[in-house]
Design a protein around this nucleic acid. Structure first.
Ligand SMILES: [Mn+2]
Ligand SMILES: [Mn+2]
Ligand SMILES: [Mn+2]
Ligand SMILES: [Mn+2]
Lengths: 225, 225
DNA sequence: ATCGTATTTTAGGCAAACCTAGAAAATTTT
DNA sequence: AAAATTTTCTAGGTTTGCCTAAAATACGAT
């Protein structure tokens, strides 16, 4: 149990740090270096913020090692992730945003909307369980569906798979995949997995072949058919 | 002409100050006292901010008198007002918010949404020209429709009028009016305008009478039928 | 015109987020 | 096991936005 401590609402910065810790590590420890590059902030800023987050009871922090979320920190991170993913879905389905642009807008809106807004959007959307990128949407109660997907980079030649999720959020990568129709729901057949450089070649439902570099292939999460 | 000066996006605080100056004064001068009470901020903070706004070229400021908007400041204020009013309309019509609750949520969201978001919402709503409180929505080009309404407090006994707009944004007042059906569009007959205390009594379309205090009556804007 | 009150400004502080430069610790390479 | 490199932390500084207390100015009333 954690002290209630009736805190004032947390800032956008605090929220983004918590999401970043959660995003990498789940229950594990996020290194300062990772947070620094992920949040585009100096390591000095990270050190300072981690000390403050510990002060606030949101992370456990050990100097020179990094930070992991407390129960309270995890709850706050999941609350933001829920907002983020519902907002993305809303932007796509109701405002006609292009698939690759929803993330950026959601990154700001997630800090400005109320719980009231969030739940009304959830209702409007019919309580979806995945966002436009295939990521599971945490429940209002903080539960998160288990993921049974595997990276395309680990598939074998001949596998027939369906894209379940795209684990990237930068616009260039999303645009690239979108242009080739490599989005959640698409069915692929694996033509080649090259050990040398990790390039994976797949054929889509229309018989078109696509070659993906190792890093990109690792972020395309699939499930066998 | 004002220097371009390619500024980074303005903060929420700056935006709310600009809206407050615009809200009172139009082209006139807003006194520090007014801004202080409207924004719930100390007069010291107001002095400081007005100096900065002048520095940024957003207001003209004369010590001990107050501030008025420059062209650039006015444009920014109108941009925010447009967002605010479109968001309110959206919250009411698409998310089912109660009439009296839309303002508060819009006050935060107006600072977080992009122009892209704003214009997509405008399109979704069919480019409305009034928000749920009857206030005109500025165009994307910064134009604002002329208002030909008069305060109910200035009406004469026997007048038949239609509510065009409610010029309040605090939830208690809005709830009070909403409960009595005194919202934009409603038609009323003026039964009494009491010189002594300014109380105005009106009869609505269902034959129900309502007495409004002078201040409240002044914020109900009507047009003769 | 002067007094008293109300308003506004100045002075001095504080907290949140960021930064750069340099010191310290950890890790990897030789 | 040193040395070299990388990572992290500390020190000190900046900007934004707020505050209280006290001084300066303006205004309204005698
Ligand atoms: Mn996203
Ligand atoms: Mn964010
Ligand atoms: Mn409003
Ligand atoms: Mn606002």
């Amino acid at each position: 149990m954690v002290e209630p401590k009736m805190s004032q609402p947390l800032s956008s910065s605090v929220g983004d740090y918590l999401k970043a810790v959660w995003g990498l590590a789940g229950p594990g420890v996020a290194a300062p270096k990772y947070l620094s590059s992920r949040l585009s902030v100096s390591s000095a800023s990270v050190s300072e913020m981690l000390r403050r987050l510990q002060e606030l009871g949101l992370v456990e922090y050990e100097r020179y090692r990094g930070a992991s979320l407390t129960e309270e920190g995890r709850a706050e991170a999941l609350r933001l992730v829920r907002r983020h993913r519902l907002i993305e879905t809303f932007l796509l389905e109701h405002l006609g945003y292009p698939w690759e642009e929803v993330h950026e807008e959601a990154e700001r809106l997630e800090h400005a909307v109320s719980d009231n807004f969030t739940e009304r959007v959830a209702q409007l959307l019919g309580h979806p369980d995945r966002d436009p990128h295939g990521a599971p949407i945490p429940g209002a109660d903080g539960t998160l569906a288990r993921e049974d997907s595997r990276p395309l980079s680990g598939a074998s030649v001949g596998d027939r798979v369906r894209i379940l999720r795209v684990g990237r959020e930068d616009t260039p990568a999303l645009t690239h995949l979108q242009d080739r129709g490599l989005v959640p729901g698409r069915v692929l057949r694996v033509e080649e997995v090259r050990g040398l450089d990790g390039v994976v070649t797949v054929e889509d439902e229309d018989g078109v072949s696509h070659a993906l570099g190792g890093v990109l292939a690792a972020s395309v999460l699939v499930r066998g058919l």
